[in-house]
Computed example of a mutant assay.
Amino acid sequence: MNDMQAPVVALTLGDPAGIGAELIARLLARADLVAQANVVLVGDPWLWAEGQRIAGLSVTTIPVASLAEVRGRANAGTPAFLAVDTVAPEQVHRGQAEAAGGRSVLAVLDRCMDAASRREIDAICFAPLNKFAMKQGGLKHEDELHHFAEHLGVTSYFCEFNTLGDLWTSRVSSHVPLKEAAGLLSVERIVAAARLIYHSLQANGVTAPRVAVAGFNPHNGDGGTCGREEIDIIAPAVAQLVAEGLPVVGPYPADTIFLKARDGELDAVVTMYHDQGQIAIKLLGFSKGVTVQGGLPIPITTPAHGTAYDIAGQGKANVDATANAFQIACRMGRTYRSGDSLFGAPTSTTPTSSLS
């Protein structure tokens, strides 16, 4: 790819007590991946050095003084490194979720988002973080997606996608108690979740995504004898999407819809609650899954697994999911940089809150 046309993708090291720095070292040691973007790593120098040591690698980077100077720089085929000072080594205890680590993660991500708002970068790919550490460190939201949305001034619909290879999932409710999931079902939320993933897949290079919607109740409600959500809410939502011109199908029973996905019949599944899709995706390929922060004005991706505190520092971290997250960030970053209207979903008139 021409260096001048390559998207500028910012990478972060994630929670300093986890496996993030090791993962980024393994990622940046692969020339085939680095060649897909103009890469800039943002992180503490000591943590970056530690990640390379744990991975048994030495990665060449070119220092930059600001994210503004990354685009158009000479030697864009070599990763840039923006050194920041967010956490001291003595504040980090490997394998532990602590406020200092959470503050570090927030500081780096906020700096990247500010650069994104100034169009200095085209995508962000962050190494695993820990929500508990971030909440100790000042996170005021239930998760990082809601923090991103507030920081970037998002007022339209947004939700988290989980992906595995060519299969993507979105969900109508997310990080809430399961007992609340039924109350969060509505035609508007299902339509928004399906619309958003359809257009986001287009931004990822899928021209005509095949999207299906899962049911909520056992056996798809058994004709209303085991719940009426499929009849009263989900089927009308699918009908509205079809009327809009989106070739969405469903609802399909949740215990069989992923068989269709596994067999290559679908590009995306809209699920009704968190574990309905997460269990399937993680069983199909835990070490390769990716989380995409859907509906934001800039692509943001991360591996779907966590900080793996239990193996931090042991040199065992598997880079596959991080590599996949980076490649999605590159593809969507190219769409974003081009100004293509397919990036994300068009602003919806329904509803303006996120998928909780």
Results as ranks from 00 to 15, higher is better:
18 G>W: 00
50 E>S: 05
321 A>C: 02
47 L>Q: 12
203 A>D: 09
149 A>E: 07
245 G>F: 04
64 V>Y: 00
193 A>L: 04
289 G>R: 04
317 A>K: 03
24 I>Y: 02
168 W>K: 03
110 D>W: 05
282 K>W: 12
142 E>T: 11
323 A>C: 15
303 P>C: 06
335 T>R: 14
258 F>C: 14
44 D>G: 03
120 E>K: 02
21 A>V: 07
140 K>V: 04
77 G>M: 13
208 A>K: 14
11 L>N: 07
303 P>Y: 02
124 I>M: 13
96 Q>S: 15
265 E>F: 07
15 D>Q: 09
21 A>T: 02
33 L>Q: 06
197 I>S: 05
106 L>V: 05
268 A>N: 02
63 P>T: 00
300 I>D: 10
335 T>I: 10
239 A>I: 07
138 G>W: 08
171 R>V: 03
146 H>C: 04
235 A>W: 01
285 G>W: 02
70 V>D: 07
343 F>E: 08
178 L>P: 05
305 H>I: 03
7 P>N: 11
266 L>N: 08
168 W>R: 14
132 F>M: 09
226 C>Y: 07
299 P>I: 03
85 D>W: 01
177 P>S: 10
340 D>L: 12
199 H>G: 02
210 R>T: 00
46 W>G: 04
104 S>F: 01
24 I>S: 05
276 Q>T: 01
33 L>E: 14
298 I>M: 09
322 T>I: 07
298 I>V: 15
283 L>C: 14
23 L>G: 06
285 G>C: 12
307 T>W: 06
216 F>H: 09
50 E>R: 13
148 F>I: 08
157 Y>D: 01
88 A>H: 09
328 I>A: 06
271 T>W: 04
179 K>E: 11
279 I>V: 15
349 T>G: 10
175 H>D: 12
240 Q>K: 15
36 Q>L: 09
187 V>Y: 01
2 N>H: 09
185 L>T: 10
26 R>E: 12
208 A>M: 14
173 S>D: 09
32 D>Q: 14
169 T>I: 13
71 R>C: 08
347 T>I: 12
35 A>W: 05
120 E>S: 02
123 A>H: 02
160 E>G: 03
202 Q>K: 14
208 A>G: 06
261 A>W: 07
348 S>Q: 13
274 H>L: 08
119 R>T: 08
296 L>E: 05
338 S>Q: 08
16 P>D: 03
54 I>H: 02
249 V>S: 13
204 N>W: 12
177 P>V: 10
77 G>T: 12
275 D>S: 05
216 F>C: 08
81 F>D: 06
17 A>M: 02
48 W>H: 11
278 Q>W: 11
141 H>T: 10
116 A>F: 02
1 M>P: 11
13 L>R: 13
317 A>M: 11
106 L>W: 00
242 V>C: 11
127 A>P: 03
16 P>L: 01
211 V>S: 06
325 A>V: 08
110 D>S: 10
150 E>W: 10
147 H>C: 04
313 G>M: 01
35 A>P: 07
135 K>M: 13
248 V>Q: 12
324 N>E: 15
9 V>Y: 03
219 H>G: 03
237 A>H: 08
